[in-house]
């Protein structure tokens, strides 16, 4: 599973990345966290407010730092 964090490197993006990593560990899933910092790449997911969270090329949230629990719920649904 590939989890992408969309954002230009702000604190919130780092927090979201950490939460995603924690959620993947809790869920027992093998996940690679990729940081996407290029504006054109970020926009290619249709995101206007960062940070954005993309799981296996699907945008699941934007403009919000989801908690590890919230990401866990999303992972369980996938």
């Amino acid at each position: 599973m590939i989890i992408k964090i969309l954002g230009s490197g702000c604190k919130k993006c780092v927090a979201l990345g950490d939460n995603a990593k924690a959620a993947a560990v809790t869920a027992g899933r093998e996940a690679e966290i990729v940081k996407v910092t290029d504006f054109a790449d970020i926009a290619s997911y249709g995101v206007m407010s960062t940070p954005g969270l993309v799981i296996d090329e699907k945008l699941v949230s934007s403009g919000k730092v989801l908690s590890a629990d919230e990401i866990g719920v999303i992972l369980a649904r996938l």
Partner: peptide
């Protein structure tokens, strides 16, 4: 101003 580019792309597209 760092959020203006994603907004520009999002609005225009």
């Amino acid at each position: 101003s760092c959020s203006s580019i994603p907004i520009f792309i999002g609005f225009t597209s």
